[in-house]
Design a protein around this nucleic acid. Structure first.
Lengths: 109, 109
DNA sequence: GAGATGGTTAGCCATGTGGCTAAGTAATTC
DNA sequence: GAATTACTTAGCCACATGGCTAACCATCTC
């Protein structure tokens, strides 16, 4: 099983990084574009980008002196899938409980 | 905006904790039941349960000497919602790009 | 080619995380 | 009431994380 779910969830467990993801959904952007709205030194910010990239949520390419980042949708889908699967199991359980409760209310058919 | 997304995502960024969640979808369980399959000292394991609980993913109640945990579905839904929202924005962007590409192929209608 | 621009590297710091052992408490059981 | 069971607390450790400054390329621009 894909246990890079670890790094995917970890990457999303930070508001700065989630903001970067949201920003990148609007289209690719350079490091300094992404950095601008965040009140944080560049090297600190770069660490966040590094985590996003090593979790596979983002890819980057350097042309000239600027590095451009763009989003990679698949890993986020993996995280969403895990959550959706859990939710379905949970709903299934609720349904079974409800069926049980109904069966108890009407003891003999 | 719900910035306890931080603790929710962080709570899910660990395989032990995800396993506990999966186990609890099957129904409530005591601390030692949950602990049994994990090769880890109890105090270490308790820290994981603590994170799940303080992220609101799980609730617990102590009766007698045993503590029973059960899952709380809502916070996981919040995480799933965030992801689903991002995915929709992403798909929307892809659609716009595709529309643009088609418009460029057929320059004059 | 000097200066500005855009990133990168190195290194420091405080705090958080994930693991452990040892010892303690509280409820059950015999 | 002694022993067992089921946690809990305290305290330690190594390493990761999230922030910083300072200094260093590399590439445009004038």
């Amino acid at each position: 099983m894909a246990n890079h779910l670890d790094s995917i969830f970890a990457a999303m467990a930070d508001p700065t990084r989630r903001a970067v993801i949201e920003r990148l959904l609007d289209g690719p952007a350079s490091v300094s574009d992404l950095h601008r709205p965040h009140d944080m030194a560049l090297p600190s910010f770069l660490k966040h980008l590094g985590k996003l990239e090593s979790a596979g949520l983002v890819r980057s390419e350097k042309t000239g002196r600027t590095r451009v980042l763009h989003i990679e949708a698949a890993p986020m889908a993996a995280a969403e899938d895990w959550l959706a699967r859990q939710r379905k199991l949970w709903e299934g359980r609720l349904n079974r409980l409800q069926a049980l409760a109904e069966a108890l209310e009407r003891p003999k058919t």
